[in-house]
Amino acid sequence: MELVVKDIDVNIGKKEIVKNISLQVKNQQFVGLIGPNGCGKSTFLKSIYKSLKPQKGLVLLDDLDVLKASEKKVSQNLGVVGQFNEMHFDLTVQQMVMLGRTPHKKLLESDRHEDFEIVEEALTRTNLLDYKTRSFLSLSGGEKQRVILARTIAQQPKFMILDEPTNHLDIRYQIEILSCVKNLNIGVLAALHDLELAAHYCDYLYAVKDGEVYAYGTPEEVLTPEIIEALYQIKCQTYKNPITNGLSFAYEI
């Protein structure tokens, strides 16, 4: 699915958080959103997945008008892995992932055999099969985030939004989660903090500063010393990593 976002404005209270952001994610593209803390990335993403109502703008998933369509209709096409939030009651991993089937269910419909198969597949993809009967709250942060990803996969979305999905996770979990998403071969829009990961996984990048798009292009075009310096107020040099052949960064304040 293709995502087109046009002229999104979000005010919270009297403050303008997101100013006129437009972007596009082509079919099966992995697009990254980078920028410093508080630049409006999360707010912008929330306005796309209907958690916040933007003051103006248009969001299209193919020809589905996201801002006007019902939550249910949107959630059948769009999956979201957000920043981790607290839960007060415990479910098993399997029950948690089964919740991903909610958008495809009528209120009184029961879970069918195929739903269990979809859940099983999502658990396999995220390497969680052994965790099926474990209690969700007893898991570590990285494991919890993988469960949330599995839930989103069970939702069978045609497009996925990730909001700093690898926050607080160790390197292995970061790579596991991003590769897993990449292998789904669907359109992805992800807010990321780690520039090396962004360079490695994203086909295209948008850099956001003070609620506006500051730069966009391929990772090589966006991740230049000048732009990084302007975004994060640090000195930065980029080089080609001799081992991975990927883009690497050396920072200094």
Binding site: S75, V80, N85, L91, L99, T152
Partner: peptide, 21 residues
């Protein structure tokens, strides 16, 4: 017969919205 919605309530508003509720 409200178990689906009650279950999503356990996740909180944000996650529930992304599950269409």
């Amino acid at each position: 017969f409200q178990h689906r919605i009650l279950n999503t309530m356990l996740l909180g508003d944000e996650s529930a919205i992304t599950l269409g509720i």
